[in-house]
Design a protein around this nucleic acid. Sequence first.
DNA 1: ATAAACCTGTGAGCGACTCACAGGTCAAGG
DNA 2: CCTTGACCTGTGAGTCGCTCACAGGTTTAT
Lengths: 134, 134
Amino acid sequence: MKAGELANRFSVNVNTVRHYVRSGLLSPDKDASGYHYFSAEEERQLAFILRARELGFTLDDIRQLLNDATSGESPCPHARELIELRLTEARQKLNSMQSLVSRMESAVREWQALPDCAPCGDHICHLIEGGHHE
Amino acid sequence: MKAGELANRFSVNVNTVRHYVRSGLLSPDKDASGYHYFSAEEERQLAFILRARELGFTLDDIRQLLNDATSGESPCPHARELIELRLTEARQKLNSMQSLVSRMESAVREWQALPDCAPCGDHICHLIEGGHHE
DNA sequence: ATAAACCTGTGAGCGACTCACAGGTCAAGG
DNA sequence: CCTTGACCTGTGAGTCGCTCACAGGTTTAT
Ligand SMILES: [Zn+2]
Ligand SMILES: [Zn+2]
Ligand SMILES: [Zn+2]
Ligand SMILES: [Zn+2]
């Protein structure tokens, strides 16, 4: 199977497949003409990569897990450690996204009552900086 | 005021200030020895940038707003348009972060009941790919 | 034979920093 | 007066996970 076919089968951009090859997550053999040949094993490996990605692992994490498996170790301990780490990070990011959305929604709400400001020289934008004329 | 002093005053990394200078959001004069000199106006402008950043505007957005103000137009219409745009994006990102965190939490919960897998040749990691031995 | 539709490796762009590096400037202390 | 150390400068590169562009090679169909 060649790159495009594999990409279609998994509904990912062919450049994503090529990115994984470039970064060593997939190592397909090459035929005489230089084309990559993805075996059933590479196919399973791509499935693994995509599932791990869905679970929030970074590509470096996935590389680690693949290395474990390749060297005959169980990747589970690393998988458990890493997902805790990534989960902590994801929760932090989620929190900051939540506060951001709240801040933005408040701003939009407050701005509805405010007129557009004319440049008065003291301010760049009264909406953003908060009114000073009251 | 020089870069480091300004950075301290606003509790931001001095490299952030220098990044804004490099990307044209701040344009301090330079003294004879080549040092940047940040006036009260630059200080106000940095405050604006940081506040706009808190509200989810991109640096390009902020550049646009500053351009508006510089050319004597009210930046408010653009501010209103852009914040709606960024809010929509932020909500999408928030949603995807929420589902990610949910997926990760489910995985962690389910994995607690599962033992570490020994490599069986069919799988890379049973935890991540889902058990096949049942 | 030629065109269309694949494939390849490589380089660069995204966003908003952050760090490293080489070299210039300045104040204080001996 | 001179050295030391703490600042400053511009520039280049690294982060992350793609995604696209480009130039050129291969295969397939007409
Ligand atoms: Zn005003
Ligand atoms: Zn305004
Ligand atoms: Zn198994
Ligand atoms: Zn496992």
